[in-house]
Design a protein around this nucleic acid. Structure first.
Lengths: 157, 157
DNA sequence: GTTACTGCAAACGATTTGCAAGTGG
DNA sequence: CCACTTGCAAATCGTTTGCAGTAAC
């Protein structure tokens, strides 16, 4: 990630911690740093492994805590595609793309779309001040669609 | 729910079961029936209780199984707003509304919008066959926005 | 100093799984 | 009758929680 943007994000985190009178610990900043290295979704377990690999020891409990704080701060966004695992993403990344979720294999693909933001801003939301959005489109990925088609062909032989 | 619509849904379920060579058990139909009684989101535990109240005994395992089948059939839709509990909804209901989620108080409001479906259909999704979508807009509900404004006013006095 | 934060391990609880008994086709 | 379904209970595993030690302010 662009280091200028990363600094922006770090500064907004600092501002949030100050406003909420929360402590600025090295764990919190190290975790945010590592999160910025993901170019797409991540989950707690992967984040934990990456931090260990980077030789930074943090407990899972702290990760869960920090990720909650970052979510409250509006810096990351929570995605729950499967029952098993919560995924997160930098809100900055999430803003301009939508998520294509395969109903068969649960794979998630991100799709950038320049019009999306504009489209959604045309929606009227009375008595509600929108900040950001997430659009999930469920369906079949090319691979599963293919598989399904082959099965149908087989059956009709 | 309109009994005509309910019949439509039941018939589409039957068609699905036939096509997939799955069995048409009384449990499956009783569960679908009960699901139709919800006017909004529901979860497995509430569904279980309602069925027991209606004097229909089913195990949780069967509920989980059936709900998966119904999801595959495209009759219900899975929502995962909180970490704790998966929620479901009839797709028929979900199709034309979006979810306004307050970042302060976590309240969820459903908002019907006639344009939404059309807007989202204009999006191109290469190598992906869309089936349905969910749009979540995060922001501040009127109440929390108000509270925030009052605090700001107080601070600037 | 005070008290929020961290780390560890144990607890939790929704969902999943294994298997014997039941029943649709 | 075959094998898909159900019910029950046990297992699973991501997440949460309690508490003692540590460090931010």
């Amino acid at each position: 990630m662009d280091s200028k943007i990363q600094k922006e994000i770090r500064d907004s985190f600092t501002a949030y911690l100050t406003e909420k009178k929360l402590r600025k610990t090295k764990e919190r900043y190290a975790i945010l740093e590592e999160i910025c290295n993901f170019s797409e979704h991540f989950d707690i377990i992967t984040l934990h492994q990456r931090l260990l690999t980077a030789n930074f020891h943090v407990s899972k409990a702290t990760l869960y805590n920090t990720v909650d704080v970052l979510t409250d701060a509006g810096i990351i966004v929570r995605h729950q595609v499967t029952t098993q695992l919560v995924q997160y993403e930098l809100r900055r990344l999430a803003d301009s793309h939508l998520h294509l979720i395969c109903m068969k294999c649960s794979s998630v693909r991100e799709l950038k779309n320049a019009h999306l933001k504009g489209l959604i801003h045309t929606l009227k939301t009375p008595r509600f001040t929108p900040v950001f959005h997430s659009l999930y489109i469920y369906g079949l990925c090319a691979r599963c669609k293919n598989k399904q088609q082959k099965e149908l062909n087989k059956r009709n032989k």
